[in-house]
Design a protein around this nucleic acid. Structure first.
Length: 208
DNA sequence: CCTAAAGGCAAACGCCTGCG
DNA sequence: CGCAGGCGTTTGCCTTTAGG
């Protein structure tokens, strides 16, 4: 039988394959290590920016930032699942109209056949006034100077940052809503040419 | 008091990626 | 390869605040 031969042949080819893969893996390791070094460096920059901002921010904000800093650094991976959770409650099928492939159909949805929940209706139904009554609960606190804070954060960041990073850096919660607010602010800054978007979800201070 | 600007929030949509 | 889910983007409306 030729099985021994076949086995030897197969082992040899596997060895050759693995050997050929080795340089690539080593190179990849090197790349990742340098990337890690970059991230580590940036982490330091972000931390220093954070501490600077904390000194600028009002007391409660600074406290929040301090509280956020530790866990965020300790377990960055845990952030992802946390933000993913709420999505489940709103399945895509429910959010998107069936067959609504045509982009920006939302605009058209104002007119069409039976737009079940036009914006105005939703708003009124939700009634933000009702949601934020004049009771003990403080209404949605606005954070004056948010734009400035973002700009300052961007200026201090040595590399393009994400909205979530900015949120954390400014001592805000990294909830989808909060991050979305940052993102909206970032977009406004980009529109105003006060910031630049370097890639998908990446922003940096405007050059020059 | 009125208005504009800034900021918050929610919804819809598109793109990307992981999984079966 | 198709599907499902996550994430980012866009958009519109509302609230709050500051300035005239």
């Amino acid at each position: 039988m030729a099985t021994t031969f076949d086995t030897q042949d197969s082992v040899a080819s596997t060895i050759a394959l693995l050997k050929s893969e080795l340089p690539r893996l080593e190179q990849q390791q090197g790349t990742l290590e340098s990337e890690l070094a970059t991230v580590t460096e940036r982490l330091g920059a972000v931390r220093s920016a954070l501490s600077s901002l904390q000194s600028l921010a009002p007391a409660p904000l600074a406290q929040q930032a301090a509280a956020v800093e530790a866990p965020a650094v300790e377990a960055p991976a845990a952030e992802a699942p946390a933000t993913k959770a709420p999505k489940k409650s709103a399945p895509k099928a429910a959010r998107r109209a069936p067959g609504a492939k045509a982009g920006r159909s939302r605009k058209a949805a104002a007119a069409p056949v039976a737009a079940e929940t036009p914006r105005a209706t939703r708003r009124t139904a939700k009634s933000r006034k009702d949601a934020a009554p004049a009771t003990t609960e403080a209404p949605k606190k606005r954070t004056p100077g948010l734009t400035d804070g973002i700009l300052e954060f961007l200026a201090k960041a040595e590399a393009p940052v994400r909205a979530g990073d900015v949120a954390l850096g400014l001592g805000r919660e990294s909830t989808p809503g909060s991050v979305n607010a940052i993102r909206t602010a970032l977009e406004r800054l980009v529109k105003a040419s006060r910031a630049e978007r370097t890639g998908r979800g990446l922003y940096q201070a405007a050059q020059g």
